[in-house]
Computed example of a mutant assay.
Amino acid sequence: MTQKFLVYVPPHPLIKHWLAVARDVSTPWVLFRSAITELGRWLTYEAAREWLPTQEIVVKSPLADCVGTMIDAEVPVAVVPILRAGLGLLDGAQTLLPLAKVYHLGLVRNEETLQASCYLNKLPEKFAPETRVLITDPMLATGGSIMTAMEELTQRGVDPALTRIVCVVAAPPALQKLAAAYPGLTVYAATIDEIVNDQGYIVPGLGDAGDRIFGT
């Protein structure tokens, strides 16, 4: 079976609402951070469909035994926030994935070359083959950071088909690079904007998500 690169933009009214709040330049940074947290929560909810491993068990209700479905806690789940802006989505994701281990990956973009370099790598040397990995990064613009992150993860045994990327805004340059390199990957975004300017920013986008999340 041929694996396909998939991009989902869930038509959920709460996702649309918090996206509008995040886009607004007049939104104060504290409310912006709350909006990103909520987007992390709802996009992770959508990403978890048919992704989280489950198992059937027998549950004793007050009246009779019945079959129930539970999350299989034996299958490892990991969240990888791309620092620093990915931390904004992490809080919302963790409310739905409380048992997931968190591995931080710090990447910084050279504003002249638009290439990403790593300044912090807390990934394990090897992931178990069945590990589900959720990457959080608000902006997929030129693709430099997310491609670096995927390279680091796949070198450590992560299966792109078991990987989900949660972002707020995605743009064609990043999506095209991901599709060419990782056809089994799935991306969940609040929206897709078509323009990336000469400075590597998505238009209309969110501005500098990291600065707006942390008020710097």
Score class of each variant (00 low, 15 high):
Phe5Asp: 11
Tyr8Gln: 14
Tyr8Glu: 15
His17Lys: 09
His17Gln: 09
His17Leu: 11
Leu19Val: 06
Val21Trp: 02
Ala22Gly: 06
Thr27Val: 01
Pro28Glu: 10
Pro28His: 03
Pro28Gly: 12
Phe32Trp: 04
Ser34Pro: 13
Ser34Val: 14
Glu38Gly: 14
Glu38Tyr: 13
Thr44Gln: 06
Tyr45Glu: 12
Tyr45Arg: 07
Tyr45Thr: 11
Glu46Gly: 08
Ala47Gln: 08
Ala48Trp: 12
Val58His: 12
Val58Met: 15
Ser61Cys: 12
Ser61Gln: 04
Ser61Leu: 13
Pro62Val: 05
Asp65Asn: 14
Val67His: 15
Gly68Tyr: 11
Ile71Gly: 03
Ala73Gln: 14
Glu74Lys: 11
Ile82Phe: 08
Leu83Val: 05
Leu83Glu: 01
Leu89Glu: 09
Thr95Val: 15
Thr95Glu: 15
Leu96Gln: 03
Pro98His: 05
Ala100Tyr: 00
Gly106Ile: 09
Arg109Gly: 07
Arg109Pro: 02
Glu112Phe: 08
Thr113Phe: 05
Leu114His: 04
Ser117Trp: 13
Leu120Ser: 15
Lys122Asp: 12
Lys122Asn: 08
Pro124Leu: 03
Ala128Glu: 15
Ala128Gln: 13
Thr131Cys: 07
Val133Cys: 07
Val133Ile: 06
Gly144Asn: 02
Ile146Phe: 00
Met150Thr: 09
Glu152Met: 15
Thr154Trp: 11
Gln155Leu: 11
Gln155Cys: 14
Gly157Thr: 01
Gly157Glu: 05
Leu162Cys: 08
Arg164Ala: 07
Cys167Gly: 06
Pro172Ser: 08
Pro172Ala: 05
Gln176Gly: 07
Ala180Pro: 11
Pro183Phe: 02
Asp193Lys: 04
Asp198Ala: 14
Gly200Trp: 03
Ile202His: 01
Val203Asn: 14
Arg212Trp: 05
